[in-house]
């Protein structure tokens, strides 16, 4: 059995990681821990700066670069911590740090590793907020071809 744990800059609670590690240990499953450096956030920011702020491309690109670099550093630290925790419990683990769109990368990895279960984390938000700002977690849930479990972040 393969469990895919999908994390991103805004979805990385300790509680959710702990849950995924427990599930993998219980089922003697391989855990694939994916951390998506969410390019969407930086790209939408770049778009907003160009579109509403009318700043030039250099300012936007510099800022986008700063943000993505920071997210990648955080992602790397998070995956290292998970690798260490998995090693202590004897859980087979593979990690991937990828830059892209959260929903797209999760779905791509699901197909690539043949995941039997996806574990996602979701911040507590109102339905209105999800409607207004969209929900990548809902997109994954709708389009995944395997069961999806969502851990609500408190």
């Amino acid at each position: 059995m393969t469990i895919l744990l999908a994390l991103s800059t805004t979805r990385e609670s300790k509680h959710g990681v702990e849950y995924a590690l427990s599930r993998a240990a219980e089922a003697d499953a391989e855990l694939v821990s994916l951390f998506v450096v969410d390019r969407n956030i930086a790209a939408s920011l770049f778009g907003q700066l160009m579109d509403a702020g009318f700043v030039g491309e250099k300012v936007g690109r510099d800022l986008e670069g700063t943000i993505l670099k920071d997210y990648a550093a955080r992602g790397r630290r998070r995956l290292e911590a998970i690798a260490s925790a998995a090693g202590e419990r004897g859980i087979r683990l593979r990690t991937e740090l990828v830059e892209g769109n959260f929903a797209e990368e999760t779905l791509r990895t699901m197909e690539e590793v043949g995941a039997d279960l996806i574990i996602l984390m979701r911040a507590e938000r109102s339905q209105l907020s999800r409607l207004l700002f969209g929900s990548a977690v809902n997109q994954v849930r709708e389009l995944a071809i395997c069961p999806v479990e969502i851990v609500e972040e408190s």
């Binding site: 390019r39 690798a83 791509r108 995944a144």
Partner: peptide, 22 residues
């Protein structure tokens, strides 16, 4: 994707193969 002892370098997927779902 590789084993747990380290973390893979960052990889972008823009312009690469996209799944049906994507």
């Amino acid at each position: 994707l590789h084993e747990a002892e380290g973390v893979s370098p960052i990889r972008g997927s823009g312009g690469e193969w996209r799944s049906t779902a994507a």
